[in-house]
Design a protein around this nucleic acid. Structure first.
Lengths: 194, 194
DNA sequence: CGTATGTTTGATAGTTTTCAACTTCAGTGG
DNA sequence: CCACTGAAGTTGAAAACTATCAAACATACG
């Protein structure tokens, strides 16, 4: 059980097992030499945290912090997945992370509206797969974190939300989002890049 | 032995072993849904290609193509590293790739000069570690590939080369680069971001 | 209720892309 | 041997986009 701002672990911490998110939300980040924090990803209930952020000597290379009051359960390498080869589980987690980073890198090369639209489409899909409403949800992260994840500044994120609201694509009330025109959102998400 | 433009493998090809680059140079890329090609990385002599780009069912998810007349040797999972645990080798390759992508993502948030300077500093270091001159080398990739790697357009890359030349940091003759002021280059590479 | 924090909005400035023209170079065939 | 051709690279001017700065506004929390 963690409260908003509590770290699940920090970069460099020894880390032997993984965690399964039961409730709440987390962000993972790395701090670069110049002190700037880069957000690598967000974790929601059902997500597995840990294996993909291991360093060679089994210490974490990212830091993970709770965005809300959250709850995790520890999953030993042997107990996860019910009989799945543990080596295979680590392998899959890391592969998943490589694909996710490649995708994130791809997002970085698109205009602001496309980036936010893609994020929202992905988030909506994640909601659906958890059994929640795909078109009505609350974002667990603030504008600043969302901006850092998307490679923008908070003001720009705010403006893009505003434009999507004006066009009737979204209804935005702080962190409460309602997708009014899912087709339009996916169309924007498919928009052009460099 | 491959010639310029030959593919070592393509996305989706079955891939069981890795390749060690003996001579020449390669680029790896993925093609996104919209048809745009994203360059993930470059490989030089000594580099290992393969383990980190495996898909779940042991097929490649990136494509790798020769930039020059190049030569590779196949390395089976058992023969690499001379007695090192093969699982560990795959694990290390993937971890290395995650770190590299995180770094690449970080580069994406910097201005053009910083990006190119970082690339050149890294390339110079790679040259040194191979026993070549750190301050005088030939880039194996064209402006277009370099631009796609850095998330820019070729014109911008050309302009940045021009500015660094004017400032006396580099000497640029097409793909032949000489670093005249290494200290200045590393200073630019450490420059600000968002 | 007041302060601190986070969000929205506006005006401006800076950077990068876009578009177009020009140059260079390698390869080819006359 | 030389002109032709196409690809790659460079350069310039304009446009588009996003960050920055500043201020108003809302929200949460003491």
């Amino acid at each position: 059980m963690l409260r908003r701002g509590d770290h699940l672990f920090r970069s460099g911490d020894p880390l032997r097992d993984a965690f399964r998110v039961v409730g709440g939300a987390f962000k993972s980040y790395v701090v670069h030499l110049d002190g700037h924090e880069q957000i690598i990803g967000f974790y929601l209930p059902g997500d597995l945290i840990g294996y993909e952020s291991l360093d060679e000597n089994s210490s974490a290379f990212t830091s993970v912090v709770a965005l809300d009051t959250s709850c995790v359960v520890q999953e030993s390498i042997g107990t996860s997945g019910g009989g799945i080869d543990p080596e295979r589980l680590i392998y899959q987690s890391m592969r998943q992370e490589i694909l996710r980073l490649t995708r994130l890198l791809y997002m970085e090369r698109s205009c602001t509206e496309t980036r936010l639209a893609r994020f929202l489409v992905d988030f909506a899909e994640a909601q659906r797969s958890r059994g929640y409403d795909r078109h009505d949800f609350r974002l667990p992260m603030g504008r600043k974190d969302l901006a850092r994840y998307l490679g923008l500044v908070p003001e720009t994120v705010s403006r893009v939300f505003g434009r999507l609201r004006e066009r009737g694509v979204l209804s935005v009330d702080n962190n409460h989002i309602r997708i009014l025109d899912h087709a339009a959102l996916t169309a924007i998400a498919a928009g052009e890049d460099i």
